[in-house]
C-alpha cells in the first residue's frame, strides 16, 4: 500500500510543478498549495504508514501497548501545514495586490522590476 501512496505523491508533485510553470499567477498559487500537500504526504509516507493507530499513549500507561504510528514525521508536518497556510495567504494577498496595481495576472506582463531592454549602467566613474 506504500507504493500506491508513493504514486499518489508523484501525482501531487507533478501537478504542482505543472501549475507553477504556468504564467497565470493564480494557477501558480494553486500549484504551490498542491506541491506543499505533496511534500507533506512525501514526508508522511517516508516515515512509514501505520493504519489507524495514533501516536498517543493510552491513559494510565507509560508506554504504548503495541505498534503505533511514527510520531516524528507528524510533528514535522503539523507545523509545515500551518506555515504552508501562512505562506499561501501571503502569496494570495501578494497576487491580489499585484493584480490591483499592475492590472495583470500574467507573469510575462509584470516587468516593473526588470524592464525589457534596460540600458547598460553608465561607463564612467
Amino acid at each position: 500500500m506504500d507504493y500506491v501512496l508513493a504514486i499518489l505523491v508523484g501525482c501531487f508533485v507533478a501537478l504542482g510543478v505543472y501549475l507553477l510553470l504556468s504564467r497565470s499567477v493564480i494557477r501558480m498559487l494553486i500549484g504551490m498549495t498542491i506541491l506543499g500537500n505533496g511534500v507533506n504526504l512525501l514526508i508522511f509516507t517516508a516515515g512509514r504508514l501505520t493504519r489507524e493507530i495514533a501516536p498517543i499513549v493510552p491513559a494510565g500507561l507509560d508506554q504504548p501497548d503495541g505498534p503505533i504510528a511514527n510520531p516524528l514525521p507528524q510533528a514535522l508536518i503539523l507545523t509545515a501545514i500551518v506555515i504552508g497556510f501562512a505562506m499561501f495567504s501571503f502569496l494570495l494577498v501578494l497576487a491580489f495586490r499585484a493584480y490591483q496595481s499592475l492590472d495583470a495576472d500574467n507573469t510575462d506582463t509584470m516587468r516593473v522590476a526588470e524592464p525589457v531592454n534596460e540600458p547598460n549602467p553608465p561607463l564612467s566613474y
Partner: peptide, 11 residues
C-alpha cells in the same frame, strides 16, 4: 482523510 486513515488525527 489520508492522514486520518493512517493514524495521524492531529494532522
Amino acid at each position: 482523510l489520508i492522514f486520518l486513515l493512517f493514524g495521524a488525527p492531529d494532522l
